[in-house]
Design a protein around this nucleic acid. Structure first.
Length: 481
RNA sequence: GGCGGCAUAGCCAAGUGGUAAGGCGGAGCUCUGCAAAAGCUCUAUUCCCCAGUUCGAAUCUGGGUGCCGCCUCCA
């Protein structure tokens, strides 16, 4: 079996063949840090996190590079508005980004190059482009000459003439053609600038990704990722720059994730229409947010609504509750492997079958929605086994195989199954616990005396206070809503 | 105007030629003093519409309708 990925560049699903055996180079476009990290950023992050984890299951060694575009018009504008240093501002929001990602359980990239620290390779690439005849200087700025690159428009499937006719913004008079884009912007007063052979200034938006990806991943590396909103012009321009300078478009597989909309409108920093990751995490556990993001294919659009989250929450809880039960049934100590027969052997085969289906799903362009469905199917199979199985060494070993699968697939790969019982982390302090124990004891006595009226009243009034009681055969559980 | 995508049950959502996964919700049942929780069972003769190709279409082709994204900073 091989991994198939949908490549925007070819607009087909292709078999993934790494440049180097068992090694994968990934460049994912990061953020321009000038505002809080929002849920829109969570989508590609979660997806690439899962892709990385999955590739490792195939024993690939992953090198993941993700940039911070910390020199940019928006950053400078906001810094001036607030009267702070532009780099300090971007450092602050870069940190916010990293913290948000950590909080979502996303593994960090191996390298986080920043424009401000990579001027040499950026300038180097601009010089090469000028030498190759793909770029020209004008009044201290350098522009990429789109006309010099015949393949321009291939990624976004646009023809140059059409693009030009659609141009609505004010064109820099120094440009030879309206579609040309800046590689180097001449310094303006009161703006941060760096020295270069073209004079003081700063890089344009797209060049940093081409230069930094090349520096850390080389030419012709494996994956380049980002949201669909980056296809044009960002990635189109990156390809033009990379191919113009090196002959290689940079990456061989271009993967784009769909937008995450908030109440039917795309989240966007510039419009202020967004929900930050930190805000969302106050209401929803990270595993639930990941579950939600992964419940749709990464290329499709996804709506974010509080109600939608609440809708999927129940199913997610059932899955987690089941894994908790399985974990406690298996116990702390890992059972010793032993030969299986009968129902245990059947379960072992069922597990293997579901693992195959999980891999089939993930290998088909990382179909996480299908992969999650496989986990639900497996849950059902394991549960029906557990209901009829008698305790034995074989039984415990068979269950541990099931648990191992949920751990590997649900936690290690997808990160949707919780490791710990978060209910125990609910606000239950010592005093509260003692008080509740007393109340439950009294109520239990009432129930034994068949004074159900009063017992139910206690439950009902606690419920109004936000404390839910559940009478089970093993006693009464309580939790804070 | 150009480019691209999407349309599957009340909702979310897989499924690219072989007769509709999964989740939520809903209904019934089991358990329970009751409730909750949990479990079990059921829940689309049909995939936006119309034509066509085919033994066979949600899947392919043509036409139509609707929604969305990009074309300007964006993940």
């Amino acid at each position: 079996m091989a991994i198939q990925v949908y490549n925007t560049l070819t607009r087909t699903k292709q078999t993934f063949v790494p440049k180097e055996p068992q090694q994968v180079g990934i460049y994912v476009c990061g953020v321009t840090p000038y505002s809080e990290t929002h849920l829109g950023h969570a989508r590609p992050s979660v997806i690439w996190d899962v892709i990385k984890r999955y590739l490792r299951r195939w024993n690939y060694q992953v090198l993941h590079v993700q940039n911070f575009t910390d020199v940019d018009d928006k950053i400078i504008a906001k810094a001036q508005e607030r009267g702070v240093d532009a780099l300090e501002l971007s450092a602050y929001y870069s940190q916010d980004y990293l913290e948000s990602m950590d909080a979502l359980g996303i593994e960090r990239a191996d390298v986080y190059p920043r424009v401000s620290e990579e001027m040499d390779v950026i300038i180097d690439m601009i010089e090469t482009l000028v030498e190759q005849g793909h770029a020209y200087e004008a009044e201290g700025s350098v522009f990429f000459a789109v006309a010099s690159f015949s393949e321009y428009g291939r990624l976004s499937n646009q023809r140059l003439e059409e693009l030009q006719s659609g141009t609505r913004f004010e064109v820099d008079p120094n440009k030879r053609s309206a579609m040309d884009f800046a590689l180097w912007k001449a310094a303006k007063p009161d703006e941060p600038s760096w020295d270069s052979p073209f004079g003081p200034g700063r890089p344009g938006w797209h060049i940093e990704c081409s230069a930094m990806a090349r520096k850390y991943l080389g030419e012709n590396f494996d994956f380049h990722g980002g949201g669909t909103d980056l296809i044009f012009p960002h990635h189109e321009n990156e390809i033009a720059q990379s191919k113009g300078a090196t002959g290689s478009p940079g990456a061989r597989y271009w993967l784009h994730s769909g937008m995450l909309n908030l109440k039917e409108e795309k989240m966007s920093k510039s419009t202020g229409h967004f929900l930050t990751i930190k805000e969302a995490l106050q209401h929803y556990p990270k595993e639930l947010l990941r579950f939600y993001v992964l419940s749709a294919h990464y290329r499709s659009e996804l709506e974010f609504h509080d109600e939608k989250l609440d809708e999927v929450r129940r199913g997610w809880q059932r899955l987690n509750q089941f894994v908790r039960e399985l974990r406690s049934s298996v116990g702390e100590e890992l059972p010793v492997p032993c030969p299986l027969s009968g129902a245990e052997q059947q379960l072992k085969e069922d597990i293997a079958e579901h693992r195959r289906r999980f891999d089939d799903a993930m290998c088909d362009d990382f179909n996480t929605a299908l992969a999650i469905a496989v986990l639900f199917d497996l849950m059902k199979v394991v549960r029906s086994y557990m209901e009829q199985a008698a305790a034995s060494a074989e039984n415990r070993y068979a269950q541990s195989l099931a648990l191992q699968s949920f751990t590997e697939l649900g936690s290690d790969v997808l990160g949707v199954v919780q490791w710990h019982d978060t209910e125990s982390e609910a606000p239950k302090d010592g005093y509260m616990d003692a008080a509740m124990r007393l109340i439950l004891d009294v109520r239990q006595r009432l129930r034994q005396e068949k004074n159900f009226e009063l017992a139910d009243q206690i439950r009902s009034e606690l419920q109004d206070a936000g404390i839910v009681l559940e009478d089970t055969p093993d006693g009464t559980r309580w939790k804070v809503e």
